[in-house]
């Protein structure tokens, strides 16, 4: 235990503090995911519009999301909001704003991809059967699009969870920050705490993300177009 530096976790409230830190990460991730999924669906439908203005807007939004590192966006919102609007927003709020902005864009792209991947003749044969527009979407298109969308969006969720590790960089006290504090405090007593603490954090992220990744690839295989 000592060699691995896990003993530190058993001291006092260290383990609880670490879990508490993880909880902040989970909260940020959860709220952002819950906001991104519905917003992304709307954005995805918006992206399929033929209107040129809609096209330019969605293109621009998507490129920003694709190109800008999430950490840069975090900096811009966290430091920039204070400066430009004179408001002080908390690091948690800044994180949620950024992750939702990012998640909505990515989710929208997945929804667009899923919708446009449904072949033309699916729409046509549904129409030929005399189904109405809402019926075509509800009965024919959406069920098929979902099969493609669910695995990819589960993957997006794991990416969002992993990215929450960035919020420590703007000072949100979460799992990474707590870990560092514990290591600092125990520097003398337990020099190997580095392994114990970072190993534990890696493990915590892993047990959240890995099952989701497995689920995504399982669903992908099961629903693969034959």
């Amino acid at each position: 235990m000592e060699a691995l530096g896990l003993d530190v976790l058993l001291n006092g409230t260290n383990a609880l503090r670490l879990l508490g830190g993880l909880w902040v990460s989970v909260q940020v991730a959860l709220i952002s995911v819950l906001l991104s999924l519905p917003l992304g669906m709307l954005f995805g439908v918006f992206m399929t519009w033929k209107n040129p203005v809609a096209k330019v807007i969605s293109r621009l939004y998507l490129e920003i999301v694709r190109i800008m590192p999430q950490l840069v966006l975090l900096f811009v919102v966290f430091f920039g909001a204070t400066r430009v609007f004179g408001i002080n927003i908390s690091a948690e709020l800044a994180s949620i704003i950024v992750f939702t902005f990012w998640g909505t864009g990515e989710m929208g792209d997945l929804v667009r991809g899923a919708l446009t991947s449904i072949p033309r003749h699916q729409y046509e044969s549904a129409e030929a059967l005399g189904l109405s527009k809402p019926q075509i979407y509800l009965q024919v298109i959406i069920p098929q699009a979902m099969r493609q969308l669910i695995p990819t969006s589960v993957n997006l969720i794991t990416r969002m969870i992993k990215t929450t590790s960035l919020v420590m960089m703007i000072g949100v006290v979460e799992v990474m920050k707590v870990g560092q504090q514990i290591i600092e405090a125990n520097r003398m007593v337990s020099p190997n705490a580095v392994f114990g603490i970072y190993g534990t954090i890696l493990f915590l992220y892993f047990i959240v993300c890995w099952p989701l990744s497995m689920l995504a690839s399982y669903l992908e295989k099961r629903w693969a177009v034959a």
Binding site: T158, I183, V194, F195, Y198, L202
Partner: peptide
């Protein structure tokens, strides 16, 4: 399935130990 940031910490602070 883990963030790069923590992988970096693990390598950067762990290897010297």
């Amino acid at each position: 399935n883990t963030p790069l940031l923590i992988q970096l910490f693990f390598i950067y602070f762990g290897l010297p130990r």
